[in-house]
Amino acid sequence: MLDHTGRYRTRYEDTLRALGHYLDQHRFTRIAVIETPEGFLIKGYIAASGRDEEHFALAPETLLFTDEDLRQLLEEAYRRRGTGGGNSSSSTR
């Protein structure tokens, strides 16, 4: 995947860190990450509340993060960390 300029490859560390944050936020567990030509395919389970506070149900989930999805996750990660990642005057969605 190329960075916001389209000239340089994005580091795996940054991409996987941003992806990991998303998976943590959505309570994924038992995760498989598969790189495809389209991006990253994620297979795992989402921990959902069960019948009481001590029990959880695991729901299977499969997601495809395209290069555009990953670019968006990276922009959010750079904003959280305050390290830029793009033009400071870029869009404010």
Rank of each mutant, 00 (worst) to 15 (best):
L2C: 04
H4W: 09
H4C: 04
R7E: 11
Y8S: 11
Y8V: 13
T10Q: 11
R11Y: 10
E13H: 14
T15M: 15
L16P: 06
L16G: 05
L16T: 02
R17A: 15
A18V: 09
L19R: 02
L19I: 09
H21I: 15
H21N: 13
Y22S: 08
D24V: 11
Q25F: 13
Q25A: 15
H26F: 13
R27V: 06
F28D: 01
T29Q: 10
R30N: 10
I31N: 02
A32M: 12
I34H: 12
E35V: 07
E35I: 05
E35H: 07
P37A: 10
E38W: 08
L41V: 06
L41I: 02
I42V: 12
I42R: 01
K43G: 08
G44H: 00
Y45A: 09
Y45V: 09
I46S: 01
I46A: 03
A48Y: 11
S49I: 11
G50P: 08
D52R: 13
E54S: 14
E54Q: 13
F56L: 12
L58Y: 11
A59H: 15
P60Y: 05
E61R: 15
F65C: 02
T66K: 06
D67I: 01
D67A: 09
D67F: 07
E68W: 05
D69S: 03
D69A: 03
L70Q: 01
Q72D: 06
L74V: 02
E75D: 07
E76L: 03
E76S: 02
A77G: 03
R79M: 01
R80L: 07
R81S: 06
R81D: 08
T83G: 02
G84T: 01
G85Q: 00
G86M: 01
G86F: 02
G86Q: 04
S89W: 06
S90N: 03
R93I: 04
